[in-house]
Design a binder for these strands. Structure first.
Lengths: 139, 139
DNA sequence: TTATGTGCAAAACATTTGCAGGAGT
DNA sequence: ACTCCTGCAAATGTTTTGCACATAA
């Protein structure tokens, strides 16, 4: 009977976190794997998954459950929203004020204990949105 | 050289839509498969996936890209938000006014052409939120 | 020393797809 | 008839897991 489980500081964990802090994109586990593998060629994909999961559980990083087929990870842990490009799947931050008030609205509208919310905007990113001829009236 | 592709009315499609209209839950493809299979035992899971995808493309139904591992489907196509139980994964509707104004805020805060947004609340559903002794170790 | 963590490979899931035969129009 | 659609099964893609060995504390 020993004590608990203070997360050990391993090379793998350090480098995963460092790489995640370097980018402003919101890489998938596989993208993190590719980034990390340049510095740690023998790391396993399983290790990347395990550590991303662990770090998101302890709140060191954020696991984004946005649309698309893969989960994405974010080293920016202060609350913020996201946009996802419908065309290419790219995800960026949206820096608008957190809409705290809607939590109370929601709590009144259902039987859940509301703990938080996330807003995901959808649209076309700078690259994908520049179709020349088709100018629809966006308002 | 024939004309285009008006979606055919097949037994499978009718029953999938009927079953989806029957429930207020937000079933996964596999749950729809189970529901439909009671009436159409030989239907294939691939057919269910193909048709759910097709119907969501034409706007007959909604494909929800919420958190969790599976996509969910909803026959209620008028815009509305969702809550997801962090414990059991259940998803319910939240009937609060659509926050149209935040789209403009978001558009100013990024370089995307914003086309829409979705809000997903997280919390504990009526069933999962009532465990007095079992306090989940989140927060 | 010893509980945790890692690499590797296989397993577990969720979803998509190719194809030959079947059904809607 | 002529497509499109379906069932089936295999393929794909993502994430998880079991296990023997390695390593941080």
């Amino acid at each position: 009977m020993q004590e608990h489980n203070p997360m050990r500081i391993t090379t793998q964990r350090q480098i995963i976190l460092e790489e995640l802090l370097k980018v402003t994109s919101h890489p998938t586990a596989n993208e993190v794997y590719d980034m990390v593998r340049k510095r740690l060629p023998r790391i396993g994909l399983g290790t990347v998954y395990r550590n991303l999961e662990l770090m998101s559980e302890t709140g060191m990083i954020l696991k984004l459950e946005v649309g698309g087929t893969q989960k994405r990870f974010d080293a920016t842990v202060t609350p913020h929203y996201h946009v996802r490009c419908m065309e290419c799947g790219r995800v960026d931050d949206i820096k608008i004020p957190i809409q705290d008030d809607i939590n109370e609205l929601a709590a009144e509208a259902c039987h859940y204990q509301i703990l938080g919310h996330h807003i995901e905007f959808t649209g076309l990113c700078g690259d994908c949105g520049k179709s020349p001829q088709q100018k629809t009236s966006i308002n």
